[in-house]
């Protein structure tokens, strides 16, 4: 089962390697990883999608908490958060296919970020599943290049995961 784990860490060099090292040496699987600063420049937020049963996820949380630079760990349930990934896809696009692809972009809320005589580059930000479907739809045109970020997630409603000073 997949779990979304939000981790607040001190923005020190080497923190990311401590976290990924912990996952590999304890045999936990990372499906995706996204790291970035928060509104507090001293704190970074890492979102990890990990695969494992309840016992594994409990151990992941506890072991992460043991790292000195980890400030907070929270596993987010699917229905309590918004999760997004950003993806950019470069497609084969001869002139006669442009309008078709534009329609797909419109229907899927993807953005056209670049066009050449033979290609088009689309950008889409959505949940993991929606991106998978999007890939299916555009694949027939010929994917030249595809790049996506890891998932980031935020809680619904007024609750928040923040670091106290």
């Amino acid at each position: 089962m997949k779990h979304t784990i939000s981790v607040l860490v001190e923005n020190h060099s080497g923190v990311l390697s401590r976290i990924t090292g912990l996952f590999s040496r304890r045999g936990f699987n990372i499906e995706s990883l996204a790291v970035g600063p928060t509104n507090d420049p001293e704190v970074s937020r890492i979102t990890i999608i990990a695969d494992g049963d309840e016992h594994t996820v409990e151990q992941i949380e506890k072991q992460l908490n043991k790292l000195i630079e980890v400030i907070k760990v929270r596993t987010l349930q699917k229905d309590e958060c918004f999760a997004r990934e950003l993806m950019m896809v470069k497609l084969n696009c001869p002139a006669d296919k442009r309008s078709e692809i534009m329609t797909i972009a419109e229907m899927t809320e993807a953005k056209i970020v670049d066009v050449t005589l033979t290609t088009v580059t689309l950008e889409i930000c959505a949940r993991y599943n929606k991106l998978e479907r999007f890939i299916e739809i555009v694949a027939p045109y010929g994917i030249i290049e595809l790049v996506r970020t890891g998932t980031i997630a935020i809680q619904k409603g007024s609750e928040s995961i923040t670091a106290k000073k």
Binding site: H55, E58, Q59, K62, Q63, N65, K66
Partner: peptide
């Protein structure tokens, strides 16, 4: 004292 040892 180490919560990670409980249930590991």
């Amino acid at each position: 004292i180490d919560p990670a040892e409980i249930g590991k």
